[in-house]
């Protein structure tokens, strides 16, 4: 999938994550999280797996985490990417 417009998904409520995707030439992640020290690496791995599965090769991905579980991160990221690629389900 190719990100062709800025789009976001999720909220800033506790246990949620607000994901924003923007078109870019390279792939870049920006992660803020209250559990960065404990889970930063796991979150990044989850994000990269989802992006690979969706075939996203480039884009600026901003993640404002509020302590979301992996399943929430996956869902929000996929929603944002699909919206940014205009391929909503």
């Amino acid at each position: 999938m190719k990100i062709i417009k800025t789009a976001s998904a999720g909220t800033l409520e506790s246990s949620d994550i607000l994901v924003t995707v923007q078109p870019a030439d390279i792939l870049k992640l920006e992660l803020e999280s209250p559990v960065l020290a404990q889970y930063g690496e796991q979150i990044e791995e989850t994000v990269r797996t989802v992006l690979t599965d969706l075939g996203v090769k480039a884009g600026l991905i901003t993640l404002q985490d509020q302590g979301a579980l992996d399943c929430t991160i996956r869902a929000r990221l996929e929603t944002a990417v699909r919206r940014g690629a205009e391929q909503e389900v």
Binding site: A9, G10, L69, D70, C71, T72, R74, A75, R76, E78, T79, R82, R83, E88, V89
Partner: peptide, 15 residues
Amino acid sequence: KDAARLLVTSALRTL
């Protein structure tokens, strides 16, 4: 609607 659909799907697969 798209966000909720994916969130529920993801929750059911994991939790």
